[in-house]
Design a protein around this nucleic acid. Structure first.
Length: 549
RNA sequence: GGUCCUAUGGUCAAGCGGUUAAGACACCGCCCUUUCACGGCGGUAACCCGGGUUCGAUUCCCGGUAGGAUCACCA
């Protein structure tokens, strides 16, 4: 069999050789970690992508290496306009930046010496390597039609065999003569290029996974497709060629790829390439409401998988990042407690400390972490963040929030004390939390405590208004409330009321609550005096007056 | 079904042959307190099951079981 002739028949126009490409893409600096993100160009970046991208980014950047973006658009049906910008910007929002790759240069040009960074533009490269493989008898054209494939599969299933093209059913196409191939091509028959697998399924491969340690599984023995009928490579082939030529040292990808590892290992071996370090991350899980079982987060069912969800809710990117790192590395939380103010990038990230089991996504935890993260962000920065969020997701409120000085004061309530308040979590929640500062959103949401009669409530507010002096300091202000409390037969010390409830109508807590509701519309809020200072005298008086009627 | 991965409280997780089995979140008390939040103190709650190996297994091995992943000319 003349494989060289076969290669020429199949790839007459391919004149560059693998050696040419090796020269065009020389090895990179020794010892540097090179990672990549390889999303398909749907533009849909989800939490899983972010999770993986974060690992890539940390691995490369904490080593002084390179993190690049390669668009895996070998499945032409899925391209969405503007997707690359979306991907870059989504990740940038979370502080993840690429050093090279698709759209990473000025004005969204590609940057780097290892391009093109779109797999769809790398056709000749893949074909050159496929041609070499054919010429060495390691790959061959396969003319099996869809119907024949289906038939083979049906037969295999009926016999409870593993499905796929291997063994006997591969024989016919493996042994086609050059003349037969030429005739088929002349007849316009479509064909794929398949790997002529040397594996037997008896032997095992053993791979030292960066996250999981030693993983072993049966060798590949399937004649997998490497070039589809349209000449575009399958993921498997593109992955091997690209990551070799782009000199990737660490491939971080989801666990769903683990099962195709034998294919990739065989491909690396037959091409004579050194495989990268593989890091197979665990899939993100959630508890299914219906079954109660863990399951993979799904694009369709789980809005929290989409990064948009966090933007809409107004989670600060730093909080999401901080949370991701706590589930990414088991010792991060510990480190954070020891170094509360350190830069997140000072944490030494290791793949060994990553969990290999699927972690359940925990909003509670995110919220808790977010409280601490937001506390470290200056109020005026938070104000900017709130406004940006509102412009996009709550346009009606954007006008009100654009008074930055006012908003900053609100956000700063109780923050710079020894025991700072931690009630800011995410923009949407924050807006609800502070909405009473804005007249358009101010409503009386709660009823006065049952200990206080309507007449008393009115009396409390009346006397409050009469004695109100906006320039009083906090102690003076509260002393006046105590006076009203005592005068109306309520306990000035809540404990007295607790001990002898029969002697009082209620306590200063109830009296304060009436005032609090009048001013904020709610029975729970930060310190009323502080709130009043921010609201301003006119608004305070107006709100009290409104309730007195 | 085959193959592979995983298995510690409700969740995330330390642990890597001998521990009173950490810690965080959530939850529940109490304290602080004019409410809430914060903070402090305390509490409920776990090694999937069965065999080995061993003086001794949560830890090592085997087998179950459960959950997950994957079996395309999709990535």
């Amino acid at each position: 069999m003349d494989y060289n002739r076969l290669a020429e028949i199949l790839f007459p126009h391919i004149d560059k050789t693998p050696e040419d490409y090796e020269a065009i893409y020389p090895p990179r600096e020794e010892g540097k970690v090179i990672t990549r993100l390889g999303p398909s160009p749907t533009g849909f970046i989800h939490l899983g992508n972010l999770y993986g991208a974060f690992v890539d980014e940390r691995l490369a950047h904490q080593n002084g290496g390179t993190f690049y973006l390669r668009i895996e658009d070998t499945d032409d049906k899925r391209y969405v306009e503007g997707a690359v910008d979306t991907i870059i910007n989504s990740l940038k929002f979370f502080g993840i930046n690429f050093d090279e790759g698709a759209g990473c240069g000025p004005d969204s040009t590609d940057a780097g010496d290892y391009g093109p960074y779109y797999q769809s533009q790398r056709g000749p490269i893949y074909q050159a390597f496929a041609k070499r493989l054919v010429s060495e008898g390691k790959a061959y054209p396969c003319f099996l039609t869809e119907e024949e494939l289906a038939e083979i599969r049906a037969r295999q299933e009926a016999n409870k065999m593993t499905t796929g093209i291997y063994g006997e059913c591969a024989e016919k196409n493996r042994n086609l003569t050059c003349e037969e191939v030429e005739a088929n091509i002349a007849a316009g028959k479509p064909y794929t290029i398949r790997l002529r697998s040397c594996g037997d399924g008896e032997h095992y491969i053993c791979v030292d996974d960066g996250i999981r340690g030693d993983v072993s599984m049966p060798c590949n023995y399937q004649d997998v497709v490497i070039l589809k009928a349209n000449g575009i490579p399958t993921y498997h082939f593109a992955h091997v060629i690209d990551d070799h030529l782009m000199r990737t040292t660490h491939v971080v990808r989801g666990e769903e790829w683990l099962m195709s590892l034998p294919i990739h290992i065989e491909l690396f071996k037959t091409l004579g390439f050194e495989p990268p370090v593989y890091c197979h991350t665990a899939v993100l899980m959630k508890l299914d409401d219906e079954t109660g079982n863990k399951r993979k987060l799904s694009k369709r069912k789980d809005p929290e998988l989409s990064l948009d969800y966090y933007r809409q809710e107004g989670y600060h990117p730093a909080a999401v990042k901080e949370y991701l790192l706590t589930i990414l590395n088991s010792n991060f939380e510990e480190w954070r407690m020891a170094n509360p103010d350190a830069d997140i990038n000072d944490f030494e990230f290791t793949t060994e400390k990553m969990s290999s089991a699927g972690a359940l996504f925990d909003l509670n935890k995110l919220n808790d972490i977010s409280k601490d993260v937001l506390l470290k962000i200056p109020a005026d920065e938070l104000a900017d963040f709130m406004l940006e969020w509102a412009k996009e997701f709550k346009p009606k409120a954007a006008g009100a929030l654009s008074d930055k000085e006012y908003l900053t004061k609100i956000l700063n309530i109780g923050r710079d004390e020894a025991k700072p308040r931690k009630d800011l979590i995410y923009a949407k929640q924050i807006f609800d939390f502070i909405s009473y500062f804005y007249d358009d959103y101010f409503v009386i949401e709660e009823r006065i405590p049952e200990q206080v009669s309507d007449e008393d409530a009115r009396e409390i507010l009346k006397r409050y208004l009469e004695t109100y002096d906006h320039s009083d300091d906090q102690p003076t202000w509260f002393e006046k409330i105590r006076t009203i409390t005592a005068d109306l037969g309520y306990a000035v010390k809540p404990k007295d009321y607790k001990k002898h409830p029969e002697e009082y109508k209620g306590s200063v807590a109830h009296v304060s609550t009436v005032i609090r509701i009048a001013v904020t519309g709610r029975s729970q809020s930060p310190d009323v005096w502080t709130i009043q200072q921010i609201l301003g005298e006119d608004r305070v008086r107006a709100r009290i007056q409104e309730l007195i009627g």
